[in-house]
Computed example of a mutant assay.
Amino acid sequence: MLNQKTMALMLAGAVAFAPLSLSAEELRQLHVTGEASMDVAPDQAVITLGVREQAEEAGAAMEQVSVRMNEVMTSLGNSGIAGEDMQTQHVSMHPVWSQVRRDEQDERSITGFEASNMLTVTLHDIDGIGGVLDDVLRAGANEFRGLSFSYSERDTAQDLLRTQAVENAFHKARQLAEASGMALGPVREIRDGGSAGGAPMMAMEMARSSDMPISAGTVSLEHNVSVTFDIMEPSGPN
């Protein structure tokens, strides 16, 4: 009669060897990436602008910035920009250093202070961007960090692209399986690769112009998924 130790070793061996045949089957798998993309017309824009001023005293520099930024925000409000579409990005203050030659040595000294206030503005009327930029320039904005376009229904578009990406993965898998003389089995794993795309940020020249011309172009949206299928020998005729 087998003792308990021998039985335990036999069971351990059975458990250890059982996955070997399973792993051999798992090797017969097909991994594909499904992709989908679309170009859409942007319906909103984001501008980062601000005011930067220098003065001998820190308080004076910040006061000048505050006055001009209030005028800029008033101008934006008069252009129909809602308060929730304006957000302060950052406020900064730092000394202005200069080098002075004394006793044949260069010395650094503070000659003033520079203050700035940056604002992010979301515009829902793309056709009016040029006029808005012209107005804020007149109101005192003297710092621009860029202009980017986006699509407000991006989530809905990405849902559609995700479905199309999965369909594309199935199409590729069926084609590859057929070309290799194999039959496509069930899906073992799906990984959502996520979305990508969007209009690049555009640099803006600091120039006073009447209704600065702006071209929105299109926004490119993309989505991809990774799908793993089983593949098997095709079943013969009955």
Rank of each mutant, 00 (worst) to 15 (best):
P95G: 03
P95I: 07
V96K: 06
W97Y: 14
W97A: 06
S98L: 03
S98M: 11
S98F: 01
Q99R: 14
V100K: 08
V100M: 03
V100W: 01
V100E: 11
R102E: 13
R102N: 08
R102Y: 07
R102M: 06
D103G: 08
D103C: 05
D103N: 15
E104T: 06
E104Y: 06
E104I: 07
Q105G: 00
Q105E: 03
D106N: 13
D106I: 13
E107G: 07
E107F: 04
E107V: 04
R108S: 13
S109D: 14
I110E: 10
I110Y: 09
I110K: 12
T111E: 07
T111P: 00
E114R: 15
E114H: 02
E114Q: 15
A115V: 00
A115D: 02
A115L: 08
N117E: 09
M118L: 15
M118I: 08
M118F: 10
T120H: 10
V121I: 11
V121Y: 10
V121R: 00
T122Q: 13
L123H: 07
H124Q: 14
I126Q: 02
I126D: 03
I126P: 01
I129R: 01
I129N: 01
G131V: 04
G131D: 07
V132M: 10
V132E: 03
L133T: 05
L133S: 01
L133K: 09
L133Y: 05
D134A: 13
V136I: 12
L137T: 03
R138F: 05
R138S: 08
R138A: 15
A139I: 01
G140S: 05
A141F: 06
A141K: 00
A141T: 07
A141I: 06
N142M: 12
N142C: 08
N142S: 08
E143G: 04
F144H: 10
R145H: 12
G146Q: 07
G146K: 08
L147V: 14
S148W: 02
S148D: 03
F149E: 01
F149M: 03
S150M: 04
S150Y: 00
Y151I: 06
Y151H: 06
S152H: 05
R154M: 14
R154V: 14
R154I: 15
D155V: 13
D155L: 12
T156H: 11
T156I: 12
D159E: 13
D159R: 13
L160G: 11
L160F: 14
L160M: 14
L161C: 06
R162I: 10
R162T: 11
T163N: 14
T163Q: 15
T163L: 13
V166G: 02
E167W: 09
N168V: 00
N168R: 04
